[in-house]
Design a protein around this nucleic acid. Structure first.
Lengths: 297, 297
DNA sequence: TTGTTTGATTGATTTAGCCTATTGAAAATG
DNA sequence: CATTTTCAATAGGCTAAATCAATCAAACAA
């Protein structure tokens, strides 16, 4: 039963019988049969098919909701008992928005000191993807904006405020200033994240509000790309203050506060709303709560 | 997997492999094998055995907690999808303390008018048993005291206040009074519930507080026994006001308020703390919330 | 058309679940 | 202390379920 519900979850993730089967480690006929059997025992059609996967029926969506709970709890059970036996072990899968990626280290490092046998998988994702994968049980926790998009059935632990800095070099335009306005930033050629990232949308909104047209010269979905361009001294970018500090400022590389408006967004840990939590998630939450006071300036 | 967890739940209820197997509709070797398989997949001993069932290990208790959730959710899934297909159907299992049994009709009757295809099982239980069976998933809801014993992981919906009346006949001692004190009641030979019932313990406490020794002449675990004795005109009892009214007063049968102190306890619906609720439970809660205002005098 | 993708179907094989019968050990009983 | 009873584990055998590899048919795309 639980295996079949897991099949359904995989199908929801992949929208494709074959790939879903691969993800579950079974062959495609096995997964097809599993879904069909679910439909028979429940007496309803769960998937709209037409020679290929189309969508879930309303009943299918409902079953998916329950499947997320039940499969999640079944995993938590194993994890819980494992933790009782061997202490905390296993793998913690975390997805973070690009601007928060650099700070993950300040969460994982003290965590690892406490629980040396836990492995990590850290993924770079958009804020939308973070929430979707949290729902799908593809990740255990996310790090994203807490105060913008509607969060689903999740619990949140605030980590730090995101404030914006113009990252540029002495010698470049605005490079010697102690603060700049968004209107001034709008005049500078920038390296920014791609528009599917919420950080970019926030910056766009702030730039457009000045009336000026923002014309980023370079887009990427990777902060490393943006930062390495700025490090050449020939480019500028807008980054969260925390990130700029983490990546390291030099004598010529400066992070200049941007004012008017001095907007702030909260970044935090997002975990599935499950009571009780899995031991790994509980430990991560504890670590986040220890870390948060040190980060909130 | 879910079946095995169900085996474990049955074993927790029965504390006996054979009876647990019966309850699950399988033979004893099947259940034994199921438990053993659970232990193997989780890698821990769940049950302390010594030629017969002794107890659960700490890990076993932990697995039981999860099993309650997972099995409960799996049932809720089926019920939920069934409700989508055929409207509300199935069986609602309710356990109530004896003094609340008569009022169950005012919950079930309007419920049945709204959902004609739902069947009921109503059980008379002590308040302790109500909570235990709620935990074990043996019942869907309970009706018991909300303000006395510590309730576990449950949600509550207040239904009505329980106030106490001396149920006796004109002609009998105190039979003509408009109110009596607990000290006076203590002097009368009474028919009361057995001491395992919380109602009896409440009455005992109130009687003993007057300093007098309470000497019930007749004990029973059935309100029908108590009431039929009082109806002969030769006996008296202490009953909740709501119950006396429901059973019906006559010209000679009187329910006299007992004062000093005028103690009140709240009776309510108790349901498992599960989000979302099963459709049947949700409908019952809705009915209880409609009913409560009419009952709270 | 022709080749590709995708999910259903088929038939063989392995696995899991369950039952009856029996055994062994501890408790209860005389 | 001997006997009986109770209880759970074990053994052996059967059936149903699960899974896989291979194939098929429909829908697309080129």
């Amino acid at each position: 039963m639980i295996d079949k519900l897991d099949f359904l979850l995989a199908l929801a993730r992949e929208c494709h019988f074959g790939r879903a089967a691969d993800a579950c480690g079974v062959t495609q006929p096995t997964l097809s049969a599993g879904i069909k059997q679910l439909e028979e025992t429940l007496g309803v059609l769960l998937v709209n098919r037409g020679s290929r996967f189309r969508s879930f029926t309303p009943e299918g969506e409902r079953v998916l909701d329950w499947a997320r709970r039940i499969v999640g709890d079944a995993r938590a059970l194993r994890e819980d008992i494992n933790a009782l036996r061997h202490g905390l072990t296993g793998r913690l899968r975390i997805a973070a928005i690009p601007t928060a990626l650099a700070m993950v280290a300040s969460l994982t490092t003290p965590f690892r000191a406490r629980h040396p046998n836990v492995q990590f998988t850290i993924l770079s994702r958009t804020s939308i993807e973070v929430l979707a994968e949290l729902d799908n049980l593809e990740i255990d926790a996310g790090i994203t904006y807490l105060d913008n998009e509607p969060l689903g059935r999740v619990n949140t632990i605030p980590l730090y405020p995101e404030r914006y800095r113009l990252l540029t070099s002495t010698g470049a335009p605005l490079g010697e200033r102690t603060s700049v306005t968004w209107a001034e930033v709008a005049q500078v050629p920038l390296c920014l994240l791609t528009p599917d990232m919420q950080n970019r949308r926030i910056i766009n909104r702030l730039l457009n509000r000045t009336g000026a047209e923002s014309r980023p010269m370079l887009e990427s979905d990777s902060m490393i790309v943006l930062f390495s361009h700025v490090r050449t001294g020939k480019w500028a970018s807008v980054m969260p203050a925390k990130l700029a500090e983490t990546l390291g400022l030099t004598q010529t590389l400066r992070a200049i506060p941007i004012v008017e408006p001095d907007e702030v967004h909260t970044i935090g840990l997002v975990i599935p709303q499950r009571e009780p939590m899995t031991p790994l998630t509980a430990a991560l939450v504890a670590e986040a709560q220890r870390l948060a006071p040190a980060l909130s300036d």
